[in-house]
Amino acid sequence: MSAPSRVRSVDSSSDREFRSVLVPAGNNKPVKKTDKTKDLTFTAKKKSSPPLSPSILRRNGVSMNASYSSEASSSCESSPLSMASTSSGKRALRRNGSNTSSALRRNLTEERDEKAGGDCFFSDGRKRCAWITPKSDQRYIAFHDEEWGVPVHDDKKLFELLSLSGALAELSWKDILSKRQSFREVFMDFDPIAITELTNKKITSPEIATTPLLSDQKLRSILENANQVRKIIVEFGSFDKYIWNFVNQKPTQSQFRYPRQVPVKTSKAEFISKDLVRRGFRSVSPTVIYSFMQTSGLTNDHLVSCFRHQECISKDQTG
């Protein structure tokens, strides 16, 4: 749910690489300057201060085009800046001058991110991560609600999630989840022992070709990875024990408030990726591995406002 997948927090660290693509930007339609707008810049000495114009805010380093656009969408998908989010910024500028411009930019960005998920109401009344909306595919919502972030310790399930995360190079989570049953049928429920008995010829047979899943290269990488998982099971006793050793058998509990704080990879993902590549695994880039860590519960990246954040912590403590 890299899915999916595309600042500083309580849990931030220097090894995280941040992204801001999870929340679409607002309407960037430029604000047309008028003589009236220009005149407003010379009314600061008047007793009743008029509203600050977009041009004034731009001079202080803040672009409010999205807020002032009459065409800005109010849907959960577009998550534009709202007019309400500018009121505190205006007061701050009048009180402290241009020195508050950086703080204002930060506050507006945070309010934008919060509204990205905060205005999305589900029929069950529960709040979810901002990248899940009532308009999302039902399989994707179920995946978020039931699997994403839950600690997994079954070898077959772990290998399935690793393989599906690798498929993100060619498919979205929506497409992957829609073809999930087909993946399970082709790859023997992702039993790494059973998969090693398959051959490239069987994977590319006409029967399987009628239900295209991935490119031949990606299909063969799953076969090769199954062989490597089998070796790991012999060496460590289970794939579960091997992979959870990287986090000391304890999931990382993130404390992200905003979508832009969620990384696409970490130094831990890079370390795991390098070890897997050294062992002969394919299609296991740091980005793929971090997506796998999210889906298998090695890290809990649900936003703190999401109802699943605390539930995943509880599952870790009781599991």
Rank of each mutant, 00 (worst) to 15 (best):
D124L: 00
S70P: 10
L303I: 04
A269W: 03
E114D: 11
F159E: 04
D119Y: 14
V7Y: 15
D15H: 11
A130N: 00
T295N: 12
F256E: 13
F281K: 00
A3K: 01
N60R: 09
I243L: 07
I193P: 01
S2I: 10
N65T: 14
Y68A: 09
K45W: 12
R139L: 09
S69W: 03
I56E: 08
V304F: 09
P212Y: 11
R308I: 12
P51V: 02
K218R: 05
S296V: 02
V284C: 08
T199M: 01
Y258N: 11
I233K: 07
E110P: 03
R19L: 14
K29T: 10
S82V: 15
N300S: 07
Y68R: 06
I56S: 03
A72I: 05
H153R: 14
F122G: 06
R58M: 06
S53W: 04
T287I: 15
Q181F: 13
E170L: 06
T210L: 11
T43W: 11
I56H: 07
R94M: 09
S285K: 12
S88A: 11
E224P: 00
T252N: 12
R126S: 11
E147L: 12
S53P: 06
V229F: 04
T196R: 04
G61K: 03
I313A: 14
D35T: 10
W173R: 01
S73F: 08
R16H: 12
K135W: 01
K265W: 07
A92R: 08
T295F: 09
K241F: 02
L177A: 01
N225D: 06
L158M: 09
V229W: 04
K231S: 09
L219R: 04
P80L: 01
R112A: 06
S221V: 07
S20I: 05
D175C: 00
A72F: 08
S79N: 12
L213Y: 05
S20Y: 07
E147R: 12
R282Q: 15
K45E: 14
F281R: 05
K47I: 15
N27K: 04
L104M: 11
F246H: 10
V229Y: 03
K135E: 09
S55Y: 10
Y258L: 13
R230G: 11
F271N: 01
H309Q: 15
K33F: 05
H302G: 07
E207V: 13
S101Y: 03
S238F: 00
V277I: 03
S48T: 15
S79P: 10
G237C: 02
V186N: 04
D137S: 02
S215Q: 03
S285W: 08
L198Y: 08
S67P: 01
D155Q: 08
M83W: 11
D275N: 03
V277C: 02
S205I: 08
T318S: 15
R279G: 07
R139Y: 03
P263H: 05
L22M: 11
T109Y: 04
S63H: 02
I243A: 03
K36A: 13
S205N: 08
E114C: 00
A169M: 13
V31K: 05
K274R: 00
A167F: 05
R139F: 02
D137M: 01
G166N: 01
M188K: 13
R19A: 14
P212R: 10
S238C: 00
Q138E: 09
S14Y: 12
V304M: 13
Q181A: 13
L214M: 06
